[in-house]
């Protein structure tokens, strides 16, 4: 939740009303309902599925709606090796996502190309997409992915949402 300065709340005066800044409210709505678009390419996709399954439950953080449609999702989790053949498709799908959007590069292959230093592998998805959070691991444990999601949530809560909305008008 926000810090003391975000919420001015005195139950005797306000009662059931919480007074806060628009920024904080918008960011709070956004970060607690980040709908991921799983770009599950290789082995990290299996750990992504395990994170979505019952033991590590990504649903606790509001992100269980794994929308495979880019138009309905907020964060793209690039899980797995991005080859040059696939790079154009990944970029196209990223372009189809609506603002605001974020990217988590999950695993070593998505972050830097991983152990595949070869002619066919894109050395890091940040060559074609702006990445917000990198997750290390091959594959990263589900706990690491959840940590990345929480880091992304912290990042989202710091965004100047109102200023961006006014700018885009």
């Amino acid at each position: 939740m926000g810090s003391q300065s975000d919420y001015g709340y005195d139950s005797k005066i306000e009662g059931d009303v919480v007074v806060t800044r628009v920024d904080a409210a918008i960011n709070w709505f956004r970060k607690n309902s980040l709908w991921p678009m799983p770009m599950g390419l290789a082995c990290c996709a299996i750990e992504l599925m395990a994170t979505g399954a019952s033991r590590f439950d990504i649903s606790r953080f509001g992100a269980e709606v794994m929308r495979f449609s880019p138009r309905q999702s907020d964060v793209m989790i690039v899980a797995g090796t991005v080859t040059y053949k696939m790079a154009l498709s990944v970029r196209r799908i990223y372009d189809q996502m609506a603002e605001p959007k974020w990217v988590i590069a999950m695993g070593a292959c998505a972050s830097t190309g991983g152990m595949y230093r070869s002619y066919a592998v894109l050395q890091g998805v940040d060559n074609i997409l702006p990445v917000d959070v990198y997750v290390a691991g091959c594959p990263p444990r589900p706990e690491a992915l959840l940590d990345a999601l929480l880091t992304l949530q912290k990042k989202v809560s710091r965004e100047p949402a109102l200023a961006r909305l006014k700018q885009s008008r």
């Binding site: 040059y84 053949k85 790079a87 154009l88 190309g113 230093r117 070869s118 002619y119 066919a120 592998v121 050395q123 060559n127």
Partner: peptide, 8 residues
């Protein structure tokens, strides 16, 4: 279609 760059 695609591009390739040499891997470091």
């Amino acid at each position: 279609v695609a591009f390739t760059r040499p891997a470091p």
